[in-house]
Nucleic acid binder design. Structure first.
Length: 309
DNA sequence: CGCTTTTGACCAGCGC
DNA sequence: GCGCTGGTCAAAAGCG
């Protein structure tokens, strides 16, 4: 989880909700009973009526959430099947070469922005492959304002754009970034807008490698800048080796709450609010409605999974 | 003036 | 061998 990782690095604890979509156990959602517990203090009669209403509503929401989770799980299984059938096939030497190129063997010298020319001058010895760790590639889908043409996912790190290319399979240009701390930081990021005509609000970012430093801007930037992230929806989907995960960054504008710099001393109060049944109910309601009614979500999820193939 | 972004050019890999 | 494509470089332009 990029958001969480970077936040951890910065020693800041943003309010992020992590939902592991592919896990065997269903997504933990606060039981509707909490609503009744919450209402119980209001009064015996009123609370009973309210409890039955919220209980029913909670059950409906839970059912919707379960249904959405099931759908996601089926999609994940289908993708896994496809992936398994692909890897089961004997790979031709050419295919092997292509794969090697598409997921290059990791090396600080080949992912810190050095050119192809330089790589050709000092090719990696094949025998050295064992000493090279496999590069960590993760993909993140983020919804942005369709009018936003900057093609950047604001993840707290400083990225320097070094190229842009229009690719064949996508009318939208693909932007290439490297960490502003390069070459000391090996991370690269590729970005492309998926299906610009239909889902221009979905940005798919591919990260190669891991930052070897704390986020330079996160700690200082997060409290103030999140208010300026116009149009960004505080929800991102990332797929990595541990499986697909949804991150809900509640610190971003447009989330349930925006954490302002002046409010930092009230962090405990904020945590209490987040832990409260009201907050959980609102969160579940928001998530359930978003999951079930947002066609972009399923589209973005499918796109993200397909990208991983 | 220094840093960032843009964009045309170049290079390597792959398919035909 | 040639053309296509993706990835990167680097000079020029833009910006604060």
């Amino acid at each position: 989880m990029l958001l969480m990782d970077s936040a951890r690095h910065a020693g800041f604890s943003p309010v992020c909700l992590d939902l592991s979509v592919g896990l065997p156990s269903p997504t933990p959602s606060p039981p509707p009973r909490r609503d009744t517990e919450m209402e119980a203090d209001a009064g015996p009669d009123r609370s009973r009526v309210a409890a039955s209403v919220t209980d029913e509503k909670g059950r409906t929401l839970e059912a919707q959430l379960t249904q959405a989770s099931e759908e996601i799980r089926r999609l994940t299984e289908t993708i896994a099947h496809l992936k398994a059938s692909q890897t089961a096939r004997p790979a031709s030497p050419e295919a092997g070469k292509k794969r090697e190129r598409e997921s290059p063997e990791p090396s600080d010298s080949c992912c810190d922005g050095t050119s192809n020319r330089k790589r050709a001058e000092s090719p990696l010895p094949l025998s050295d492959g064992a000493s090279c760790k496999r590069i960590k590639v993760s993909k993140v889908c983020t919804r942005i304002d369709p009018a936003d043409t900057t093609l950047t996912v604001k993840d707290g790190y400083q990225w320097r754009k070094y190229g842009q290319k229009v690719t064949r399979d996508n009318p939208s240009p693909r932007a290439y970034f490297r960490c502003a701390f390069a070459p000391s930081c090996p991370v690269k990021k590729k970005e492309q807008v998926q299906r610009s005509a239909e889902d221009s609000s979905v940005l798919v970012a591919t990260y190669e490698g891991e930052h070897n430093h704390a986020s330079p801007t996160r700690a200082a930037e997060l409290p103030t800048s999140c208010g300026t992230r116009s149009g960004s929806v505080p929800c991102s989907i990332s797929i990595n080796s541990s499986g697909p995960t949804i991150t809900l960054d509640l610190t971003k504008n447009g989330g349930v709450r925006v954490l302002e710099a002046a409010e930092e001393p009230d962090l405990k109060k904020l945590c209490r609010e987040i832990a409260s049944p009201e907050f959980r109910t609102a969160l579940v309601e928001q998530m359930a409605s978003a999951l079930t009614s947002d066609t972009d979500f399923t589209g973005a999820l499918a796109a993200a999974i397909l990208q991983q193939l």
